[in-house]
Write a protein that binds this DNA or RNA. Structure first.
Lengths: 110, 110
DNA sequence: ATAGACGGTAAGTGATAACTTACTGTAAGT
DNA sequence: ACTTACAGTAAGTTATCACTTACCGTCTAT
């Protein structure tokens, strides 16, 4: 699966977004993250793994605990994916808006 | 569910992204979209509904066919969501990177 | 060394969601 | 009017995925 695919899938889940958003203010250990969430600690661990594989989150051992923090790489990947669309969409949207009445593409018959 | 939640969920699916990407070059009818996809036409219809509810896609009737095109609103929503993070993340990441060695937050003991 | 905290992993369960085929509706063509 | 093309909807199936409890490893402290 693509990098942005993993990131999109990771952030598609509500609970996972909650975990992710609790990292906005800075690094947190797992127990801290699970404390005020409606799911169990193992569930949070599993979500963190998905987020980590999507490069949205980093883990760092500190003694007994593991501090999770936001990894900018995943966000950057997502941003680039969207920006890639943005230019094309604006162009295609503009130029195709009035042309869509007839043929529906640039590379199609008519 | 939030607007960006719907958009993230819609784009999390591989097949749905394929449909979405086929609209990059301009509007297409459903049959045209389904033609070179590994799933049935009704499946594509169902995906289009999800994309439409996420405001990622628009539908426009033209005679017998329905032309689908990209709706910039969903992309914009997503962009704003990410940008909301972006500023915070860069700031928090920078300032918290070296501080994470001790207390793990801004509002915590230690 | 034993105990207690922290947290990842395994295995199983239930709900969701992506697919299929069958059906319905509508617009255009003959 | 009848047929054909286009596409949304219904119903049912299967696979995925988020969750649970139970278990295991590791680090710190006593």
């Amino acid at each position: 699966m693509s990098a942005y695919g993993r990131a999109l899938h990771a952030l598609a889940d509500e609970t996972r977004r909650s975990v992710f958003e609790r990292l906005r203010t800075g690094p947190r250990p797992v127990g801290e993250l699970a404390k005020d969430l409606p799911v169990s600690r193992p569930a949070v661990s599993q979500h963190l793994r998905v987020l980590r594989e999507a490069k949205l989150v980093r883990e760092r051992r500190e003694g007994n605990r593991r501090l999770y923090s936001i990894d900018p790489e995943g966000l950057l990947t997502l941003r680039e994916y969207l920006d890639g669309y943005w230019g094309e969409v604006l162009a295609a949207f503009k130029s195709a808006a009035e042309r869509e009445a007839k043929g529906y593409g640039d590379d199609e018959r008519e």
